[in-house]
Design a protein around this nucleic acid. Structure first.
Length: 414
DNA sequence: CCTCCACAGGAAGCGCAGGAGT
DNA sequence: ACTCCTGCGCTTCCTGTGGAGG
């Protein structure tokens, strides 16, 4: 083997791969099983949903159109996993019995318009043909043709359906297609994690899309623990994760969102951290550190994807809270707290923007920015209340000013 | 109590980019 | 290729709100 590298020049006493190689006894036996995309064949605590959906869809097996279903629930509650699971089972079964049932899954985040969704459907139905630049009507006819010709029951899953711009027209097209096909039918399954989305639907869209509906509740700590334990068994080597670590990860996730995805993610990261340190077991400590790390990553990615002027605003905010000046606007008691007024932040933002040769936005829009940053959890605001004049807001950074400033410095100046 | 201050946040409207229809 | 339409980001204008101060 060494002959392949005839004369390795020793650069340092230790090869850079040494530290990666020394951990040959990995804590993981199957990383895939703990990745966010993994869909286990058993979906615990979702038996009722699986049962209901499959019962409803079973109509397609006897050549009838099934009721359109609308699923909603927060992220990581298993909507997508359950639906995909049921759909693959349905298609497998139908294939085995040679029944004309077809199904496809579309994420509306990637196909945000009616035309895109229809093209995607048709492209999946005619895999050999391409449909670039054909009219909406042509694509629609192709869809109707395919269903009629095959006398097929087509199940279309529209995930993140709230991302569709012209949903009313899309639903109308697809339901109208049902009237036009001669034999066969189209069943819709809509998935949304926006709980209020259903209320905002056009009444006609609502009545055709929501023939049946189902709520996916968040998982509680106990359920999350069971889910995590199952994943741990698949993904980690035996006895390499402490029970308390699993409990902690479950508790964190349950406390925040009841989101299985973040719980799984947390444990995966904890595993990586433990491995890096050459530990034999994943403990509470790693879970805590993983949580901190994940949070920091979220902040970093959030901050860097912010529109430029919100970045400038955050930067000004960080600067101001770092060099807290004597509270000029205070009329009352001295405050040790690092309080920042809406007005002074806007002033700082304006001068900062000018320094960066950017025309500052209006104060009205600045207020809108602050609200948006608050929604992201990057800042928090309180009413000024007693001791301060006027009806104003006091703004605080949600995270360490120094970190935010350092990152934005790179982002804006570097 | 009234007035002023320093904002909050609603309403209307404007210019623009990009998609749909022709 | 060309208009037309529409959603989006934003400005302008405005009314509302709560405390300070006379």
């Amino acid at each position: 083997m060494t002959d392949l590298v005839p004369n390795p020049t020793p650069v340092s006493s230790q090869n850079i791969f040494e530290k990666h190689f020394s951990n040959t006894k990995s804590l993981f036996v199957d990383r895939e099983a703990i990745s966010p995309h993994f869909i286990p064949e058993q979906l615990p605590f979702r038996e009722t949903q699986i049962h209901e959906i499959s019962e409803s869809l079973s109509a397609t097996l006897s050549g009838k159109k099934a009721s359109n279903i609308f699923l909603y629930g927060k992220t990581g509650t298993g909507k997508t996993s359950v639906t995909r699971h049921v759909l693959t089972q349905l298609l497998e079964f139908a294939k085995g019995k040679n029944l004309p049932v077809a199904g496809l899954y579309i994420n509306c985040r990637n196909h945000s318009r009616k035309y895109r969704v229809l093209s995607k459907i048709v492209e999946d139905l005619y895999p050999e043909e391409r449909f670039f630049g054909f009219s909406s009507g042509f694509v629609y006819d192709k869809l109707v043709d395919w269903v009629s010709k095959n006398k097929a029951q087509l199940v279309v899953v529209l995930d993140e359906i709230d991302k569709t711009k012209d949903l009313d027209e899309l639903v109308y097209s697809l339901t109208r297609a049902n009237d036009e096909v001669t034999g066969g039918g189209i069943t819709l399954i809509g998935i949304s994690n926006n709980l209020f989305f259903r209320e905002r639907l056009d009444p006609r869209t609502k009545s055709s899309l929501v023939e049946k509906e189902m709520v996916f509740p968040p998982y509680n700590a106990e359920e999350l623990r069971a889910i995590l334990n199952d994943r741990v068994k698949r993904a980690f080597a035996p006895d390499s994760v402490e029970d308390s670590a699993v409990n902690l990860a479950a508790a964190f996730a349950a406390n925040e969102s009841g989101d299985a995805r973040t719980a799984v993610m947390l444990l995966f990261r904890a595993g990586e951290l433990a491995e890096q340190k050459g530990l034999e077991k994943v403990t509470d400590d790693e879970v805590k550190r993983a949580k901190k790390k994940v949070e920091e990553e979220i902040i970093t990615s959030m901050v860097s994807t912010l529109p430029k002027h919100q970045q400038i605003l955050l930067f000004s905010l960080a600067e101001l809270s770092l060099n807290k000046k004597p509270q000029a606007k205070l009329t009352g008691q001295p405050s040790a707290e690092n309080v920042l007024f809406s007005g002074e932040i806007y002033d700082e933002y304006c001068s900062m923007a000018k320094k960066l040769k950017e025309p500052p936005v209006s104060s009205r829009w600045y207020r809108e920015y602050i609200s948006e940053l608050e929604m992201f959890g990057l800042v928090s605001t309180t009413a000024s209340g007693q001791g301060f004049r006027g009806n104003s807001r006091i703004v605080k950074l949600g995270f360490e000013p120094r970190k935010i400033r350092d990152q934005l410095e790179k982002e804006l100046l570097g």
